[in-house]
Design a protein around this nucleic acid. Structure first.
Lengths: 216, 216
DNA sequence: TGAAAACTCAGGTTTTTTCCTGTGCAACAA
DNA sequence: TTGTTGCACAGGAAAAAACCTGAGTTTTCA
């Protein structure tokens, strides 16, 4: 065995600590580490082909989504495991479509990381119980509402709006900044309240923080 | 040398990874790890006396503040280093008073962790440039306003209010829950807006998240 | 190609938030 | 004692947020 792993996280301390931990697993070896998607691509194009890439979602420059998509298109044989702080129910399906093989939260036990890596290396897939649970409720929610799965996603504009809503701007100012009418902003807000099941702008901001839509 | 360290963090993965990393430093050895302050006390009372305790701030049961205070009172010879996600300017002075020897953010480079541990072990103190910078502006802010240092802190009620403000409750509902009049709630809000330099409830919530007043 | 969905915009109303200027009381220090 | 400070509370007003119903235009896709 001795599967090769590339570790991608912009938190250097956590990343290097994880690298040391993973290297202590006899089955795995950390081939290299990176701070963002661009560095991963660079490493891979230089010939460092790993078996598994362990990806953080929130990174500057090129985040987990983009990196997962690039890997799927250019190296479909490389398996991708997501390791994130947030229980991003929004992110899950999008990641599934990007061909991600595993989804883990950062508050797991080290043994679960090891098990997940082994499962992905051998069987090809690993989803934590938490993740599968989320998926279940997510599908259920959409079926109940009679919506298609696509509705569960956030569009780029919605994400942009949410980020702006997590500030001290009024909706009028947000409208100006986004080159939209306040009325349109109203609609984005209302549909997001409905879609994300929140009741106020603060609730929306909290949701955004919890799910890693915004980071600080 | 070979200083003994106890590592305290409720994120098991990060904690164990850090333990592996620190054990790779020839100067240090991880004596034991813990998920909260209570477990640290247990370990120490069982005779595992470390040279340094590396503490996360936000933990269930007994957080970094309480644990640091207990250590200062019961084992003043043990040095305390804080390792946190947040640049808690609120927390800094409080921690200084609790006799904390070092303050680090989790997004540092592993080498800075090593240097910090060495500095604390040898000289007794280490504060990152970020932290000292924060301290400077904090002192400056208070001098400018002609306030005493104490004013920089948040009272228990203020923290309670902030936590409630980071929800979908209206102020009326918060007032009910806190057994205060809506008018009084208004005053807490206004004085916090002024004290923390924010302009809206969303701004307050964002501040709270950034500084670890609330966690998710 | 026709129906469904997404995107943009509108008027009007109610509720909530934010801001303003005040009062009374208790604790505490000069 | 007096003056400062913290704390709880008040009325009123302006701004913002939230909620309602509606409609035209484009995109998507079956």
């Amino acid at each position: 065995m001795h599967k090769q792993i590339i570790l991608v996280d912009d938190h250097v301390l956590l990343r290097d600590a994880l690298a040391t931990l993973i290297n202590s697993f006899p089955e795995f070896n950390v081939l290299s580490v990176a701070s963002n998607g661009i560095d991963v691509i660079k490493a891979i194009e230089e010939g460092n082909i790993p078996d598994i890439v362990v990806l953080d979602l929130n990174m500057p420059k090129m985040d987990g989504f983009e990196t997962a998509a690039w890997l799927k298109n250019n190296h479909p044989d490389i398996k991708v495991v997501i390791l994130t702080m947030y229980d991003s129910e929004i992110a899950l399906i999008r990641l599934l479509q990007a061909g991600v093989r595993g989804f883990l939260k950062k508050d797991i036990h080290p043994m679960e990381l090891k098990n997940a890596l082994i499962a992905v290396a051998e069987n090809g897939y690993y989803y934590s119980h938490q993740a599968t649970g989320k998926l279940g409720t997510l599908f259920k929610k959409n079926n109940d509402a009679g919506n298609s799965i696509e509705r569960a996603f956030l569009t780029d504009i919605e994400i942009d709006f949410i980020k702006n809503a997590c500030s001290e701007m009024t909706y009028k100012e947000i409208a100006l900044k986004m080159s939209l009418t306040p009325r349109t902003i109203d609609n984005y807000r209302d549909s997001l309240f409905d879609k994300l099941n929140v009741k106020s702008r603060v609730g929306l901001a909290i949701y955004a923080v919890k799910n890693g839509v915004v980071t600080f």
